[in-house]
Amino acid sequence: MMFFRSFLFFFGVLATLLLGWAGLVGMPDAMISEIPPPEGLQRYTAEQLYGRSIYIREGCLYCHSQQVRPEGFGSDQARFWGRPSVPGDYVFDKPHLLGTMRTGPDLLNIAARQPSEQWHMLHLYDPRIVVPGSIMPPFSWLFEKKPTAAPGDIVLNLPDSLKPDGRAIVAGRDAKALVAYLLSLDRTYPISQGTATLKGK
């Protein structure tokens, strides 16, 4: 009797967890992992992937989501943040960066909205230069100070007041890669029915 009760307890307890795993992770895995990547979706280049790792390193995901809500659920569509995202948009993403917070705007289609490399550079160096009142943190360590810029350097167009000793501020390797990644974030290509239906509405 005692043995039977203990067995029932442990079995029951284990079963609840395993069922949840099968249902919430296993089932979608079986359904979604079959999806072919949409035609318009490019693989990340090595540089973009490195930039993506900077995005993770600096914790951008704690303030920015990468998922676009459909019409009728929030204002993503009215704000022109891109078409509602579908599972196919993420097939090359590991780790996923869907995010849970929008202290800043969604970034899944930031390249379509803001294609300017210079803007992103300035914004990362000090967000308040381009967006007064922003509460995004500055990421100045992604940049280098040089007495004179070398040819091929991406120089920040800063007003003189922000260049204390008159030296040039140029994008470092990490800043270039991060911006390359941001400029790859454009999932506005059309999607075929197969990918779309899974979305279910």
Binding site: L24, V25, K94, H96
Partner: peptide
Amino acid sequence: LWFPLLYVVANLGLYQGVVEAAMNWW
């Protein structure tokens, strides 16, 4: 019983993309 199983499975990194997001919040 639950926690070690959960923690180990989650740390294995079995999934990708949206399924990984589901795993993450599971």
